[in-house]
């Protein structure tokens, strides 16, 4: 595809799309939003890039190796955050018992471990979307 308009528009919009995705991820724990929907938006930004600029350029920016690493990292990160509670002598995924402050209504960065978990899940979802897209596209040729 060599459409000038398409390329310009995607190049212009991409930062905003990614920003919006991150916004949704970061607001997931105490307000409307969430890691899954945010991660999908971030992933879709990357998919749009691959669609317009070509699969090769897309996978140059984000190699298969990187997406695999991020995917594994996201899952392991979730497990590690859960283990914080166990190591602090309370139960798995526990927030209060592991000594982190609880969330306060209206304050964004106050949800204890949940924000960190949300970040991990968002990364995982974004990279999974890219992996799925690449897997479907590569089958074609």
């Amino acid at each position: 595809m060599s459409d000038f308009v398409l390329k310009r528009v995607v190049a212009l919009l991409l930062p905003f799309v990614q920003m919006f995705g991150l916004y949704v991820i970061f607001h997931g724990h105490l307000s409307p939003g969430g890691s899954f929907s945010g991660g999908i938006i971030v992933g879709l930004g990357m998919i749009a890039f691959s669609l317009v600029f070509g699969l090769e350029k897309g996978s140059e920016k984000l190699t298969e190796r990187t997406t695999t690493l991020i995917e594994s990292f996201g899952t392991l990160w979730y497990g590690a955050m859960g283990l914080v509670g166990v190591l602090r002598g309370s139960s798995f995924l526990m927030n209060k018992g592991s000594g982190v402050p609880l969330g306060e209504p209206g304050k964004l960065y106050s949800g204890g471990l949940i924000l960190l978990i949300t970040l991990g899940v968002g990364l995982k979802v974004a990279s999974t979307m890219v992996t799925l897209f690449n897997a479907l596209m590569e089958e074609e040729d």
């Binding site: 969430g34 899954f36 799925l132 897997a135 479907l136 089958e139 074609e140």
Partner: peptide, 21 residues
């Protein structure tokens, strides 16, 4: 249902990949 949507996304992706194969 958010979980349900995640599941159905993965099922759809898997079945589309299988159809292409």
């Amino acid at each position: 249902m958010l979980t349900g949507i995640v599941v159905s996304v993965s099922v759809t992706a898997l079945s589309l990949a299988l159809i292409m194969r």
